[in-house]
C-alpha cells in the first residue's frame, strides 16, 4: 500500500471519528445531513459485500467492518438517540435519496465491467458515493451557523477521495495497472463536487473567520 492510499484511508477514518466525537461530546448532530449518512450506509453495504467472500488483508477487513459499523452507528444516533435526534435539522435536510440512488443504480446496470452481482453492486457503490455528499452540501448552504467540527468533517471527507486519485495515478505507473475508468471518473467527480466547499473552507481558515457558504 502506498502513502497516498494510506493517507486517504486515514483521512476518511479521521473524518468519521470527528463526526462521532461531535455527536457524542456535544450531544448534537446539528448541521449533519441524515440523508448523506444513510447514503453512506447504502454505499458501504453494497461495496463491502465481498467482506465474507474474498480476503485481502486484515487491514482491509478491519477497515470495512469499521466503516460499516460507524456509518450505522451515526444513523442510529441521528434517528433514535433521544437527545441527539432532537438536534437534527429535519426541515432543512430536504434532499430526496431516491433521486440519487435510482439513477446510480440504473447507471451501474448500464455501465459496468462485468455483469455479476458483486460487480454491479460495487459499481453502484462507486457511483452513489460520488454524489452522496450532495444532501450534506445543500444543508450546509442553508445553515447560517456551521460549527468547526462539521466544517472539518466535510473537509476531511472530501480530501480522502482526492488522495485516492493520487493513489490511482501512483498505482497506474508502479503496478502495471490498466486504465480503470469507473473508479477514476467517479472519484474525480466526487472530489470535484467539493471544489467550492474546499475554497470557502480554506479561505475561512486563512482569514480566521467563521465558515459560511454562499446560498
Amino acid at each position: 500500500m502506498n502513502a497516498f492510499r494510506l493517507a486517504g484511508d486515514m483521512t476518511h477514518l479521521l473524518s468519521i471519528i470527528l463526526l462521532l466525537l461531535k455527536i457524542r461530546a456535544t450531544k448534537s448532530c446539528a448541521g449533519i445531513s441524515l440523508k448523506t449518512q444513510e447514503l453512506y450506509v447504502i454505499v458501504f453495504m453494497s461495496r463491502y459485500l465481498d467482506l465474507f467472500r474474498t480476503y485481502y488483508s486484515l487491514y482491509n477487513s478491519l477497515m470495512k467492518i469499521i466503516f460499516l459499523g460507524t456509518s450505522m452507528c451515526i444513523v442510529w444516533y441521528m434517528r433514535s438517540h433521544k437527545v441527539v435526534r432532537q438536534t437534527y435539522n429535519n426541515d432543512e435536510d430536504t434532499f430526496r435519496h431516491f433521486f440519487l440512488v435510482l439513477p446510480c443504480f440504473v447507471l451501474a446496470l448500464l455501465v459496468h465491467r462485468n455483469f455479476t452481482f458483486i460487480e454491479i453492486l460495487w459499481t453502484f457503490s462507486l457511483y452513489l458515493e460520488s454524489v452522496a455528499i450532495l444532501p450534506q452540501l445543500v444543508l450546509l448552504q442553508k445553515s447560517s451557523n456551521i460549527d468547526n467540527l462539521t466544517g472539518t468533517y466535510v473537509f476531511l471527507l472530501g480530501a480522502y477521495r482526492g488522495l485516492y486519485l493520487f493513489n490511482w495515478v501512483y498505482r497506474f505507473f508502479t503496478e502495471n495497472h490498466r486504465v480503470r475508468w469507473i473508479p477514476w471518473l467517479s472519484g474525480l467527480i466526487q472530489t470535484a463536487i467539493y471544489t467550492d466547499f474546499f475554497y470557502y473552507y480554506i479561505r475561512s481558515w486563512k482569514n480566521r473567520e467563521k465558515l459560511k457558504l454562499p446560498a
Binding site: 492510499r5 484511508d9 476518511h12 465481498d50 474474498t54 485481502y56 488483508s57 482491509n60 477497515m63 470495512k64 466503516f67 465491467r113 460495487w122 485516492y164 493513489n167 490511482w168 480503470r180 473508479p183
Partner: peptide, 10 residues
C-alpha cells in the same frame, strides 16, 4: 485471469 481489480481498496 480474474484480477481483484481495485477491490482491494476501500
Amino acid at each position: 485471469n480474474v484480477e481483484p481489480e481495485l477491490h482491494d481498496e476501500l
